[in-house]
Amino acid sequence: TLGYGYAQLTMTEPYNSPTSPYWANKIFLLLALPANHAYWQAEEVALPVMAETQLLAVPHLLASHDRGHTVLLNAGQPGPNYHALTNEKYFKFAYSSQFGFSIP
């Protein structure tokens, strides 16, 4: 379980979420790789062309991409999952890559 001797989601969610400083800073581990590592030798390729709109059936989201800005429209989520501030995080109508994720 997440926590000490029992599930403690309120304590561990900041660590496990994508907004965690731990996960955000893991990218800097690449700087520890030697200069001859395969990561630094890889050829740069262009990003694949994405469809302008795409239905994501499992999370019930409609993704819309426009000039580097992505919006996810929420078509309905299942009931509460008992994480801290569930409604503020998971039940919004729209999520945007242009505006930072926040909880009031």
Rank of each mutant, 00 (worst) to 15 (best):
L2P: 00
G3L: 03
G5S: 06
G5I: 00
Y6H: 09
Q8S: 04
T10W: 13
M11A: 04
T12Q: 06
E13A: 05
Y15G: 02
S17W: 02
S17Q: 04
P18W: 02
P18C: 01
T19H: 02
S20Y: 02
Y22V: 13
W23I: 01
W23N: 03
A24T: 01
K26P: 00
I27K: 11
F28A: 03
L29F: 04
L29W: 02
A32N: 12
L33V: 06
P34W: 05
P34C: 05
A35Y: 10
N36K: 14
W40T: 04
W40N: 01
Q41P: 00
A42S: 09
E44M: 11
E44G: 08
V45A: 11
V45Q: 14
A46S: 15
A46D: 15
A46V: 09
V49M: 11
M50P: 00
M50W: 13
A51C: 04
L62M: 13
S64P: 01
R67D: 13
R67Q: 13
H69S: 10
T70W: 13
T70P: 00
V71N: 05
L72M: 08
N74C: 08
N74W: 12
G76I: 12
P78G: 08
Y82D: 14
H83C: 04
F93S: 10
Y95P: 02
S96Y: 04
S97L: 12
S97V: 11
G100W: 02
F101E: 06
S102H: 14
I103Q: 08
